[in-house]
Design a protein around this nucleic acid. Sequence first.
DNA 1: CCCTAACGTTTGTGACACTAACGCTAGGTC
DNA 2: GACCTAGCGTTAGTGTCACAAACGTTAGGG
Lengths: 157, 157
Amino acid sequence: MPERDRHVPTDPLAVSARLRSLPSRLLGRAAMHADRISNTHLAAAGATRWQYATLVTLRDAGPASQATLSERTGIHRSDMVAVLGGLAEAGQVERAPDPDDRRRNIVTLTPAGRSRLRALDHLVDQTQQELLAPLTPAERAELRRLLQQIDDHHSTR
Amino acid sequence: MPERDRHVPTDPLAVSARLRSLPSRLLGRAAMHADRISNTHLAAAGATRWQYATLVTLRDAGPASQATLSERTGIHRSDMVAVLGGLAEAGQVERAPDPDDRRRNIVTLTPAGRSRLRALDHLVDQTQQELLAPLTPAERAELRRLLQQIDDHHSTR
DNA sequence: CCCTAACGTTTGTGACACTAACGCTAGGTC
DNA sequence: GACCTAGCGTTAGTGTCACAAACGTTAGGG
């Protein structure tokens, strides 16, 4: 006796083609994977993405006030407080009042922070490899280029 | 008298090149822009991204239980409750117990939901245009392809 | 009759981006 | 001098998103 199609089994994998091709949705999902991967790896080393971004910025652009660090990293200044708190507590960063403007803190990378950063650099590179595993080198470069165009376009305005 | 360079003005725009080129960071920033744009437009129409995804999935893959809808949309089943609650309250969806399995609710798109969805389709298309404005049609297709590869690779495992 | 498992639901968690407000300090202008 | 405006670091709170844990209900197999 042939199966009566009660419920019309409705394959759960039948995702809408429109939904699957929406760029905003694809971006969200890819970013979700990226977040999960990099958070996992960084957490295993006892660090966070914000801490890494702050350390890199201090190394590449030099000591700066918290407000300047906020602009450079894109981390909100009210979140920067805790980030620097953690880094200072770990001795990777020094927060000293600016003698020329006592509203400011001048944040400096310590030797400990610098060596810590080298380890994290290595780790972050691995996460990028894992994230971009299915892409060829040329495709990775193209993806970077396209994403940078989108970010620039919506950031500068 | 020439300006003495106290503070070493430290251009706030001096973002680290390494940080700016990190794919995971670029993905996060692009997704942030995408979220902001689509949330703004959908909120103006009194809808959310989750509601839209659910409506589209119901239209394209047919009536289904909440659990099946969760798998198809990627929305967690504990969040799906409120989404369907909102849609049902607005009369865009009907939630009826499955006579063949009383654990399940069969969710169906109503005519009101269908016409509402047509309006949202239009609106969502506009957000994609706005998001991808700086890219050529060929670049948009390439971006979709690359993002889909990343998503597929990290979803199927 | 158990046992296992799936379903819908409620409650809570954590990361992220952001707003609002506060005390303090700097740098004018009257 | 007194006054005002604005930037700084800080705290507390908001909203979205993805998810975990647990509970009562129902199905179905040994």
